[in-house]
């Protein structure tokens, strides 16, 4: 083996047309310098804030490149309780035991690592974007990760009683002023809320409050109320930036998964 000699500076060419060409978002004003992401948030024909677009969670401004990908990961993707001192997260005893077990396994037991669905929490704040498609009675969120979707019904339907558990839950929404409030229930047990393995149970009530703060930015306040796993609700508030003009790619984890046999705690 040989040590690498000093070499030229990275000079990757601009991406070739390997995917859809960029199509500017209609709700974002164009200027001579490009899209004005600080312009007022667009509205739909029924005067609601228009949340439509392809969004990617913002990186942790204090984060450092990490992981196999050497990326600065979004902090809540790694740890939903990132805003709480690590030893003050209000875990119940059973959840604490499960969390310890997951941490001790060094990432070798995470569902993602075996191409099981990542679930709504990791997909929301993960490094792959999602796309919101908004209609008056139905908001669809299409996640690039796992190539899955959520339906958020705004048609006044009642929450499902005794829901059949789902990875993505059952979601209903309503407008509170300029905020879309989404309530979700019906999740599976033994969820991973983040890369570290904070647990979530089927008793989880997820509340999300979506606000498009301007043309190029989205804020979601997330509250996880799960009395099985936490003695009080967890709240965090990731922010997102519009991937202006971009569309989603595919991501099917099982396409070429070959790491699992190599995992070593």
């Amino acid at each position: 083996m040989r040590t690498l000699a000093a070499v030229a500076v990275l000079a990757l060419a601009a991406p070739a047309a390997a995917q859809w060409a960029k199509v500017p978002d209609a709700g974002v004003p164009q200027t001579a310098d490009g899209p004005n992401l600080s312009a007022k948030a667009p509205r739909t024909a029924d005067r609601k804030p228009d949340l439509s677009g392809t969004w990617l969670v913002d990186k942790d401004p204090d984060g450092k490149p990490q992981g196999l990908e050497q990326l600065v990961f979004p902090k809540y993707f790694v740890n939903v309780a990132a805003d709480t001192d690590f030893d003050k997260v209000p875990l119940t005893p059973d959840a604490l035991a499960l969390f310890r077990e997951r941490l001790a396994a060094g990432g070798t037991t995470s569902p993602d690592a075996f191409c099981k669905p990542a679930g709504v929490f990791e997909l929301l704040s993960g490094p792959l974007p999602f796309k919101i498609v908004q209609t008056p009675k139905l908001v669809m969120i299409l996640y690039e990760g796992d190539t899955v979707y959520r339906q958020i019904f705004l048609d006044g339907r009642r929450p499902v009683e005794d829901p059949e558990p789902r990875f993505m839950g059952y979601s209903t929404g309503r407008w509170n002023g300029d905020t879309l409030v989404v309530d979700s229930v019906g999740f599976k047990d033994e969820m991973w809320l983040d890369g570290m393995g904070h647990p979530g149970s089927s008793k989880t009530h997820l509340t999300e409050r979506y606000r498009r703060t301007d043309a190029g930015h989205l804020a979601i306040e997330i509250t996880i109320d799960d009395t099985v796993s936490y003695t009080k609700p967890l709240t965090y508030a990731p922010t997102f930036t519009l991937l202006h003009g971009e569309d989603l790619l595919e991501y099917f984890c099982a396409e070429n998964e070959k790491d699992a046999p190599h995992y070593t705690p």
Binding site: G67, L68, V78, D87, L96, G107, T108, D112, Y263
Partner: peptide, 28 residues
């Protein structure tokens, strides 16, 4: 219920290495 020294020690080792799309660096 807190993680205590166990959690604090693990966090110092793992909090920065658990992020990944698919599997973590440390898994392999």
């Amino acid at each position: 219920y807190v993680l205590g020294w166990f959690g604090a020690t693990l966090c110092s080792l793992l909090c920065a290495t658990q992020g990944s799309a698919h599997h973590s660096f440390s898994a392999e």
